[in-house]
Each structure stands twice: as structure tokens, then as C-alpha cells.
Simulated scan of single mutants.
Amino acid sequence: MMRIFLMATLGTLTAFAPPAHAQQAGETRLVVRPSPAVPATPTPDQQAAVLERFARARDNLVALREGRRSVSDLSPQELQDVLDYDRRVRGDYPDTRGAKQQCIDDEFRRAGGRPSALARQVIALKCRN
């Protein structure tokens, strides 16, 4: 009778025990979360606001060039909008190249755009960081 009790008890204990692989030290658990929601397309009101800001920046830039307004008349946001608008119109985007790439580009320009193999090696040595 005692033997049946022990076997029954061991059976319930193993039924509630975590699996052997979960008891290993240093186990990492993978947590899966849903991806963030995809941003919705802008509403007509948001599109109108962007176009209005764009038109205001254009008008402010024209007024600045004609002398009807001065830079001190603009709010910081208006000034930033004018600078962004001017940059986009001229195609002058911020330079995101690293120092090494700028050095290489400058040296290639100095060499006439088509340096020889030896000149390329010299440029590589000169521009390494």
C-alpha cells in the first residue's frame, strides 16, 4: 500500500515539476511582442497644415529677400521653416558623410576626379583615421 502511495505521489510531483530543460542555469527566454502599429496616413487637416506651413515659409523667404521683413521679425519656428525651405529648394541637404569620407572626396576632387592607382593608395593612407 505504501508503495502505491509513493508512486502516486511521485507521479503528481513530476506532473507539476517544470521540464528539465527549463531548469538549466542561464536560460534565456524569448518574449514576443506585437509589432508597433503602422502610422496612419496623414489626415486632410494635417496635410493642409503642412502645406500652409510650406506656403508661409515661402512667403517669409520672399519677404526677407525683398527687404519687407527682417530675420528678427520671425519666430524661431518660422526661421527654421524658412531655412529648411531654402535648403530644399537649393538642394543643399546636410552633409552626413564622416570625416574619412569627406577627406577622400576632397582628395579625389584635387586629383581631378580620376586619380591613378598609386594616387588612390596615397589618398587611402592620407585619409585613414
Score class of each variant (00 low, 15 high):
10 L>E: 04
71 V>G: 00
53 R>I: 01
109 R>T: 11
102 Q>D: 04
34 P>E: 14
118 L>P: 00
42 P>E: 05
111 A>C: 03
109 R>M: 09
31 V>L: 15
22 A>H: 13
109 R>F: 14
11 G>N: 03
82 V>Y: 00
89 V>T: 14
120 R>S: 02
72 S>M: 08
98 G>R: 09
114 R>H: 15
61 L>T: 00
123 I>G: 02
70 S>D: 10
19 P>I: 01
21 H>S: 11
94 P>T: 11
69 R>M: 09
38 V>F: 05
39 P>H: 05
72 S>I: 06
51 L>Q: 13
48 A>R: 14
54 F>G: 00
23 Q>P: 00
67 G>M: 07
21 H>T: 06
90 R>W: 03
8 A>E: 04
14 T>K: 04
81 D>T: 02
117 A>W: 14
112 G>A: 08
8 A>P: 00
126 K>S: 13
97 R>A: 09
16 F>L: 10
18 P>A: 11
108 F>K: 02
57 A>E: 00
46 Q>Y: 02
124 A>F: 05
39 P>T: 05
97 R>V: 05
2 M>W: 09
77 Q>T: 08
87 R>W: 03
100 K>F: 06
124 A>M: 05
101 Q>R: 09
53 R>V: 01
54 F>Y: 14
94 P>V: 09
51 L>T: 14
58 R>W: 06
81 D>W: 01
86 D>E: 15
68 R>D: 13
23 Q>L: 13
13 L>D: 01
66 E>C: 01
89 V>D: 08
89 V>W: 07
105 D>A: 14
56 R>Y: 01
3 R>L: 07
24 Q>Y: 06
117 A>E: 13
37 A>Q: 15
121 Q>P: 00
48 A>K: 15
57 A>V: 02
105 D>G: 02
107 E>C: 03
78 E>S: 04
95 D>Y: 14
128 R>N: 12
80 Q>H: 08
61 L>R: 03
126 K>C: 02
32 V>F: 09
85 Y>H: 08
33 R>L: 10
78 E>D: 11
21 H>V: 11
16 F>Y: 13
92 D>V: 12
110 R>Y: 11
1 M>C: 07
120 R>W: 06
118 L>D: 10
4 I>A: 09
13 L>C: 08
108 F>T: 00
23 Q>N: 11
69 R>S: 12
6 L>C: 07
102 Q>F: 01
32 V>P: 00
117 A>P: 00
63 A>G: 03
18 P>Q: 12
99 A>E: 15
48 A>F: 12
1 M>F: 14
28 T>R: 12
124 A>V: 03
124 A>S: 10
14 T>V: 08
90 R>L: 09
24 Q>L: 08
67 G>N: 06
71 V>W: 15
43 T>Y: 03
36 P>F: 10
61 L>Y: 01
